[in-house]
């Protein structure tokens, strides 16, 4: 039996209310359960976003990464959104989708990041950014999508915008969608997408 109790990150456990230094050490633990617990514990500290961000940057375990992202959502605010926004570019599909869902859950604090990402040069980032608009960003996000749809050259991005607008759009959205469909009259996929969206939009 050791005379000195080893640090939490070596024993595989994290006490219920660990001190900040223990949390910082635990976020680098080789034990996934400890890293997950550390992400939860970090929420109570002022620099909790920084601690979780540090862990998330190197996290390989999908379940732990998801837990870290959920804890960033729980902390919320623009700083958490700033950590999540770059993850829309992740090569890991599950992670970029989790980040989009998290930004969606963070709400209005994610709006400035949405406004930038939805205009990104990479169409894949624009598609993921559209997912963020399904959340509580309000009418501003819908108006942004409507404006950008008019000039969108990438059909997959446009259809992603249309799918989201079907959910968050208004009566006025219908004319925007019809206008886009008129640009590509020969595409059955666009026609299907727009027709399905028009059926879901509010009628009055």
């Amino acid at each position: 039996m050791p005379l000195v109790k080893p640090p939490a990150h070596q024993t595989g456990t994290v006490p219920p209310h660990p001190d900040r230094a223990s949390v910082i050490a635990a976020i680098d633990s080789c034990d996934p359960a400890v890293r997950r617990a550390a992400a939860w514990a970090a929420r109570v500290y002022a620099d909790g976003v920084d601690i979780i961000s540090h862990g998330l940057a190197v996290e390989k375990d999908p379940a732990v990464a998801e837990a870290m992202i959920l804890n960033l959502v729980a902390i919320g605010g623009p700083k958490a959104a700033a950590v999540l926004a770059p993850l829309l570019r992740s090569q890991d599909a599950t992670r970029r989708f989790a980040a989009a869902e998290a930004l969606r859950d963070i709400g209005p604090d994610a709006l400035p990041f949405f406004d930038v990402l939805i205009r990104d040069r990479d169409p894949q980032v624009r598609i993921m950014a559209a997912e963020v608009a399904r959340g509580q960003l309000g009418g501003a996000a819908a108006q942004t999508l409507e404006r950008l749809l008019s000039d969108e050259e990438h059909i997959n991005v446009a259809c992603a915008f249309i799918d989201v607008l079907a959910e968050i759009g208004s009566v006025e959205t219908a004319d925007v969608l019809r206008g886009y469909a008129a640009r590509l009259p020969g595409s059955a996929y666009v026609r299907f997408t727009v027709d399905a969206a028009l059926a879901r939009l509010p009628k009055e």
């Binding site: 999908p62 890991d92 599909a93 599950t94 970029r96 989708f97 989790a98 869902e101 598609i127 993921m128």
Partner: peptide, 11 residues
Amino acid sequence: DVNMPKMDGLS
């Protein structure tokens, strides 16, 4: 599809 929540297409 590739982009999906919970478990993506590649996984």
